[in-house]
């Protein structure tokens, strides 16, 4: 499976156990540079759990490699600094900070060095990086707003920008388009293409099949914690197993 020089993120046999629930069962996934990979599955399939495991928020077994570097025993914040960024299903912006400041948290590391920088000369905030990330998701005009002044859909986009800023190599997006209407969702698809074209690999989780099938290069399908199918969007959408998995669950938008 590996060996592809383009592969950025490679997970092998990721398993997560929550009490009696095996929320992830030996999940193997690959995401290449400038590639958009979809991860779909019914509610409760374990998609968010997978993102949690990969980014260091759920205890797991198995290995995670980012560009050949093993990450599985690295704490969550280090994984982010190494370029593995995520968004949250529920937005989770910092409510006291403006949108731009939300992004700045990811750019300026706090700590003793930051302390000295704060006390002395103002550090040059990576304003350009922040502006660029905001414009990639079309939120330049919202830089000075607080999260609660934004619609839920835009909060999600701000979360995407926060994950994007800095030297992000792989972006894991957990239902970033859930608050958007059809038009905005299509617009977001274009933005996503632009983002991927600039280098990072993207793992996209979403229930919006149109979006996923449109923008993804490849799609993985998860059910009961297992990958049950993968391949090109057209193959996956006609796979009988996939259809069964979706019909067997409450209808999702």
């Amino acid at each position: 499976m590996s060996g592809d020089p383009n592969t950025l993120l490679l997970t092998r046999d990721i398993s997560v156990q929550y009490g009696g629930v095996r929320a992830n069962d030996e999940v193997c996934i690959e995401v290449g540079a400038a590639e958009i990979v979809g991860l779909i599955g019914p509610n409760g399939a374990g998609k968010t759990t997978f993102v949690d495991a990969v980014t260091g928020f759920a205890p797991h077994t198995g290995t995670i490699e980012l560009d050949g570097v093993r990450l599985d025993s690295v704490p969550a914040h280090r994984r982010r600094r190494l370029g593995l960024a995520r968004t949250w299903q529920s937005g989770e912006l910092f409510t006291d900070l403006t949108v731009a400041e939300n992004l700045a948290v990811s750019v300026d590391p706090p700590g003793l060095r930051g302390l000295v920088a704060d006390l002395g000369r103002r550090r040059k905030r990576a304003d350009e990086d922040i502006q660029e990330a905001l414009s990639l998701v079309g939120l330049e005009a919202m830089a000075g707003r607080r999260p609660d002044e934004l619609s839920l859909g835009r909060q999600k986009l701000a979360g995407v920008a926060r994950a994007l800023v800095g030297s992000t190599r792989v972006l894991l997006l957990d239902e970033p388009a859930a608050g958007l209407d059809t038009e905005e969702s299509a617009e977001f698809g274009h933005e996503l293409r632009r983002i991927a074209a600039s280098g990072p690999g993207v793992l996209l989780i979403d229930h919006d099949m149109t979006l996923v099938l449109d923008v993804c290069d490849r799609v993985y399908v998860m059910d009961f914690g297992k990958i049950i199918a993968s391949g090109a969007p057209s193959d996956v959408s006609s796979d009988a197993q996939v259809i069964a998995a979706y019909l067997g669950s409450p209808v999702t938008p």
Binding site: F57, H77, E92, F94, L97, V105, S106, A163
Partner: peptide, 14 residues
Amino acid sequence: RSNERAAAAAGVNV
């Protein structure tokens, strides 16, 4: 203060 998980995901060593 507002969200430890999101802070860690943003690269902050909580």
